[in-house]
Each structure stands twice: as structure tokens, then as C-alpha cells.
């Protein structure tokens, strides 16, 4: 057999296997939402008739509207604040150079490698002293300034044509108007990619909300699902139904912004 053709076949086989393994758990999740827990544990891979029963159990166990609203508030407010604060900083670090700020930026990159575990205890003490434990403010604030996203915006700003800024200055715009009316529209791919990354991180955030959101009515869907999973005999039908609902928002955002996401990533790595 032709070796080039054989290699080609191997590549397709490898990629198909990888794609199958990547997608199968999604299929499993959706099928699982329609099956009873006992059938799921027995490995049934065909749709069943328990969808409505699972939905009923889920909505009876979880105050879904409230919990999803909590998740949405935290994720949307957190994402919007992160994008504003971090893009301002990324733009500022790149456009206005000073020796002190370059040193500060280098320090931030060093901090990037410090794990969250090292801040978690003092952060919790800080918020309990400020009497903010169990509030959305506490859940959102520490996530707003993201070094990774600042770095990402600074890298992307390197590709922002400085002629545009000069032209806008001649037209009489001040620095803030330039940022709002020139930079933000031009960089929309970068914003789209950052939106995907930050929204997913916020929607799926677990450890900090687990520590700081303590009463059931303030918890996010991620926390509630986790609590239900660790039951001694979890009801997988109901759980996988909840998992489908919890995964939908990130899936929708991903597919809506996917094209821009790839563009945005390419822009940042260049």
C-alpha cells in the first residue's frame, strides 16, 4: 500500500478516535438526562423515557430559577467588570510606557504563577472581617482583575495600529474617547475571545464560591450540582439533566463566538 495514503489513513483514524472520545461524554450526558439513574449506572446508551421524571425531580430538588439567576448575575457582572478593568489595563500598559509600569507589569507576570490556594485563607478572613461573606460582591470582586486577561489584552494591543490613535487625536478625541470609540470596536475579536474565556471561568468557578457562598439560596448551579453529586447514592438521571442545563449557557456562548474566538487567539499569539 502507498505509504503516504497509509499515513493519511492513520491521521484520520487518530483524529476520528480523538473526536469520538471528546464528544461521547456530551452524548452520554444528553442520553443520561432521558434515562433513570439505575439504567445510567448500568451503561445504557440509548434514549429512555425518563426525561420528564428527571426534570420533575430536578425542579423539585433545586430552586432552579433562583440558582440559575445567581449563576447568571455572578458570571455576567463578573465578566463585564473583568473585560473593562483588564482591557483598560492591557491598553494602558502597552500604549503609555514608563519604567515603573514596566517593572510593575513584570511583577504581575511573576504573580501569575502563584496558586489560588495561597490567597484563599487570607481572602476569606478579609471578607469575613468586612462582613461580606455570603454575598455576590465577595464572589465577584477577587476575580475582576485577571492578570492573564491583562496580559492577553496587552499582547493583542501590540497589533492595534497606532495611526488610528494618532488620527483620532488630530480629530480632537481625548484618550478615553479613543479607547471607547476607536479601540473597543477595532478589537472586537479580542473582546470576543476574552468573553468566552472569562465567562466560562466565572460560570464554572468552584473553589472560591464554595468557600464564600454559604447559604443554599445564594449558591450557583455549579455548587448545587456538586453537592448533589456527592450524595451517597446520587440520582444520575436528575443530575445529568441538571448538568445539561448548566452546560447550555457556555455551549451557546462558545458556538456564537467561536469564529471570533479562533481569530482572537491567533491575534494574541502573534
Amino acid at each position: 500500500m502507498n505509504p503516504a495514503l497509509l499515513r493519511r489513513g492513520l491521521v484520520y483514524a487518530l483524529l476520528s478516535l480523538a473526536a469520538f472520545i471528546s464528544v461521547f461524554p456530551f452524548y452520554w450526558m444528553i442520553i443520561g438526562a432521558t434515562n433513570a439513574s439505575a439504567d445510567i449506572i448500568r451503561g445504557k446508551t440509548t434514549p429512555g423515557g425518563a426525561l420528564f421524571a428527571n426534570a420533575a425531580t430536578f425542579f423539585a430538588t433545586v430552586d432552579a430559577p433562583r440558582i440559575f439567576m445567581n449563576s447568571a448575575i455572578i458570571a455576567v457582572v463578573g465578566t463585564a467588570l473583568t473585560l473593562v478593568v483588564s482591557s483598560l489595563a492591557g491598553y494602558g500598559f502597552e500604549m503609555f510606557r514608563s519604567r515603573i509600569r514596566e517593572k510593575l507589569f513584570a511583577l504581575l507576570l511573576l504573580l501569575l504563577s502563584i496558586p489560588f490556594a495561597a490567597m484563599m485563607v487570607p481572602l476569606f478572613v478579609m471578607f469575613s472581617q468586612a462582613k461580606l461573606v455570603n454575598t455576590f460582591v465577595a464572589a465577584i470582586l477577587p476575580t475582576v482583575a485577571s492578570i492573564f486577561i491583562i496580559f492577553y489584552f496587552r499582547q493583542a494591543t501590540k497589533a492595534f495600529p497606532s495611526e488610528l490613535r494618532d488620527a483620532a487625536k488630530i480629530d480632537g478625541l481625548n484618550e478615553w474617547q479613543i479607547f471607547l470609540y476607536v479601540y473597543m470596536p477595532v478589537m472586537r475579536s479580542t473582546y470576543a475571545a476574552a468573553t468566552i474565556i472569562v465567562f466560562m471561568a466565572n460560570w464554572n468557578n468552584y473553589l472560591w464560591p464554595l468557600i464564600v457562598l454559604q447559604t443554599a439560596d445564594n449558591k450557583t448551579i455549579t455548587l448545587i450540582l456538586s453537592a448533589l453529586t456527592s450524595a451517597y447514592t446520587p440520582d444520575y438521571g436528575m443530575l445529568l439533566f441538571g448538568t445539561v442545563l448548566a452546560t447550555l449557557p457556555t455551549l451557546v456562548i462558545f458556538f456564537l463566538l467561536q469564529r471570533r474566538f479562533v481569530e482572537g487567539m491567533l491575534g494574541a499569539v502573534k
Binding site: 471528546s22 464528544v23 452520554w28 445510567i40 460560570w203 464554572n204 453529586t229 445529568l240
Partner: peptide, 25 residues
């Protein structure tokens, strides 16, 4: 397809894996 797993939350995929890796699973 290969990128898709990244959109699941750590909790969602833990639940999925826990049910797939059950003893009779």
C-alpha cells in the same frame, strides 16, 4: 470536537465521568 470538552464545567464533567466509571458502568 476536540476543543469541546473545555466548555464543560469541572463539576459537569466530574458528574459525567463519575456515572461513566461506575462499577457496572
Amino acid at each position: 470536537a476536540i476543543f469541546l470538552p473545555c466548555v464543560t464545567s469541572l463539576i459537569a464533567y466530574s458528574t459525567i465521568f463519575k456515572s461513566m466509571f461506575a462499577v457496572d458502568g
